[in-house]
């Protein structure tokens, strides 16, 4: 996968350290491995459309950015519901596969590594039902 995670909230870097030291390091051995960034004031969150000025905090926004700096996917949740890390990993694997294929591949709904990959081609038009089954979803 070789993917860099960056987390961002409006908290100060000192609070990030305290959260890591006092709670997260008890959940993850060795503590949080990736940079925990401080976006005091929500300037960056505003650029990404996830800063809520009324509450002064950022929503659970997740952006997958490719090696060219292009945003390939995003998901935004309100605070009470946590993310599904497995789905994020699945999407990264799918985007990496498509990129390595130079755009000559497409992953159907529910795709997982090892499952059918479609190759867009004039002959595939109207014939997806032969190449892929709904049962795979």
């Amino acid at each position: 996968m070789d993917t860099q995670v960056l987390s961002v909230s409006v908290d100060s870097i000192y609070v990030h350290k305290m959260w890591n030291d006092h709670e997260l390091s008890k959940m993850v051995e060795g503590g949080v491995p990736f940079p925990m960034l401080s976006d005091a004031g929500g300037g960056v969150g505003s650029l990404y459309g996830v800063y809520d000025a009324a509450s002064g905090v950022e929503l659970r926004g997740r952006f997958i950015i490719d090696p060219d700096g292009i945003i390939q996917a995003c998901e935004v949740l309100t605070p009470p519901v946590g993310r599904n890390v497995g789905e994020t990993i699945r999407q990264i694997q799918a985007f990496q596969l498509v990129r390595e294929a130079g755009g000559m591949a497409a992953t159907p709904s529910g795709w997982l590594p090892g499952k059918t990959v479609l190759k867009p081609h004039p002959d595939l038009v109207g014939n997806v039902w032969q190449a892929w089954s709904v049962a795979e979803d």
Binding site: D2, L6, S9, M18, S55, E58, R60, I64
Partner: peptide, 15 residues
């Protein structure tokens, strides 16, 4: 981080 895949995650707050 150009040249790498990046997951940028915003969240409401520590703790």
């Amino acid at each position: 981080y150009r040249g790498k895949w990046v997951v940028l995650c915003f969240y409401p707050g520590d703790f």
